[in-house]
């Protein structure tokens, strides 16, 4: 299953990449940490590694390493505004439980 992003998210990623002046795309990942098992990571990409899978949606390259992909299959990345806070949100169909703050999750 592919990884997708919303038009809003794609537009923000493109803006941030232009502002940064370099970078191939955005890397999604998970790390085993946090209060509820796993945590999302979101980084700029300068290098693509051998075990990475690269998706492309709305002109944006999404890079995920093999291990993280297990937990992120079918994830949709959105960019939302909540009050005066704004940022990216993972919509991950694999998630079974989240910690109170939603920064970490279990599958």
């Amino acid at each position: 299953m592919a990884i997708t992003l919303s038009e809003k998210a794609a537009q923000r990623v493109r803006t941030f990449l232009i502002n940064r002046g370099s970078g191939l795309g955005v890397r999604l990942g998970v790390k085993t940490t946090g209060c509820s098992g796993m945590a999302y990571q979101l980084e700029f990409v300068d290098d693509i590694n051998d075990d990475d899978t690269v998706f492309e949606d709305r002109g944006v390259k999404i890079v995920i390493d093999a291990k993280s992909l297990l937990y992120l299959e079918g994830t949709h990345l959105d960019f939302v505004r909540e009050g005066i806070n704004e940022g990216f949100r993972f919509e991950n169909p694999n998630v079974k439980g989240e910690c109170g703050c939603g920064e970490s999750f279990t599958v």
Binding site: L42, D47, S104
Partner: peptide, 17 residues
Amino acid sequence: MALLQIAEPGQSTAPHQ
């Protein structure tokens, strides 16, 4: 859930940190 920002490669922080 919490909203995330894009970090520099290798600079992602642990949750709540």
